[in-house]
Design a protein around this nucleic acid. Structure first.
Lengths: 202, 202
DNA sequence: GAACAATAACCAAGCGCTTGCTTGCTTAAT
DNA sequence: ATTAAGCAAGCAAGCGCTTGGTTATTGTTC
């Protein structure tokens, strides 16, 4: 029974709906602990119906990761659009990343740890999507180094930075004392040696 | 059929053997993707035999995490024993932590993300073990702040630091260009504003 | 514009397999 | 004689996925 046009207000594109529900459940419970029945139920389908849209559970994960990462990438680009100062740019990158990580409901960067459930080919595609995501970060870090605001822009710096941010999903509680803005500030402050103060930073 | 004394070289304590095998598999494949049959096979048992030592698969995870964390804690304490300079202390903490993370074969800190498979009570016990583990870190960070080598020793700093380190297990390759020692140096350098150089840190 | 065919998007039912775990028994050590 | 430590076998539940049918929509032909 397909959706009628009279069912207004309901997402007509059930594929995207499945992707969002799957991403959310995969993040919350993990890939293996999430059953295809969970996903179907989350969008009001019967247990076998998701397989009309996706050939396998793995393909659902793969699509959720890639499309989620690309969406996040686009969000990053539009967020830094027009910003020239590299420090301000980094601040916006960090804030936006933490936003999709802690405030969104798909939170695709967290699914990295679930990629082990996929085969080599799928993992390669995901790695490519992640490379795209990292481009603006690396550019900004190099600009910061050029402006003498960063000691090094070697790859480990970028990776350590992502670690700081991504791991925060393990401990950050939105109802706690720390706001996401403050967290973003703390992360940026750890990276950048403030130019105005010298050795003794209060 | 219990182990004979004549089976020299084989671990007599099969419980610890099970714990190590389970921790390794849980880290590699995740809790849900690891079957109790995998664990049994890894130590040369039949599929039902692990349940003589542990009441459930969850209890295996819980024990692996707590005993792994406490072992890591003891290793930390003995590693910093006799070191007074807080910067050297931090360096050793980071290096030791990365050692158990990237070079050990249990790597218990990585299992944090698998704790969601446990109930509230078990998670509370694990959180307590993690609190113990974090004590020397917080002490060292505060000593660093007192010595004006660190801008802030507020809790987020410690948590961001753990993020940097723990996340490295997602990308670090032991056969790559970067050694664990260099990685430890890079991580410490990101935290500490070098006192000898000022603004332009080359 | 009515009749019909084709298609998209599901549902109902269930198949074969794997899972965590149990039970009853066996054997070596104490 | 008792116990610690395991094996052999298997159960019930849950898993990913398939199959065949059903229905509203869309396109085509007369």
């Amino acid at each position: 029974m397909p959706r009628r046009k009279s069912d207004v207000g309901l997402e007509p594109n059930r594929r995207a709906e499945l992707l969002r529900a799957a991403a959310k459940l995969f993040v919350e419970k993990g890939f293996d602990a999430t059953t295809t029945r969970d996903i179907a139920e989350a969008v009001g389908m019967r247990s076998g119906s998701p397989f009309y849209h996706f050939r396998s559970k793995q393909e659902l994960l793969k699509a959720a990761m890639i499309e989620g990462l690309d969406a996040g990438h686009a969000q990053l680009l539009s967020a830094i659009d027009g910003i020239n100062d590299p420090e301000a740019k980094l601040r916006v990158l960090v804030r936006t990343h933490l936003g999709t990580l802690l405030e969104g409901d798909c939170r695709s960067p967290l699914l990295v740890s679930e990629a082990r459930a996929l085969d080599d080919k799928a993992r390669a595609e995901i790695a490519a999507a992640f490379d795209r995501y990292q481009v603006p970060w690396q550019e900004t870090l190099e600009a910061l180094q050029q402006a003498d605001k960063l000691a090094s822009a070697a790859p480990p710096v970028r990776l350590l930075l992502f670690g700081m941010l991504n791991w925060s999903s393990h401990w950050y509680r939105p109802d706690g004392e720390l706001s996401v803005d403050e967290l973003a500030d703390a992360a940026v402050a750890m990276l950048i040696a403030r130019p105005k103060k010298t050795k003794a930073q209060q």
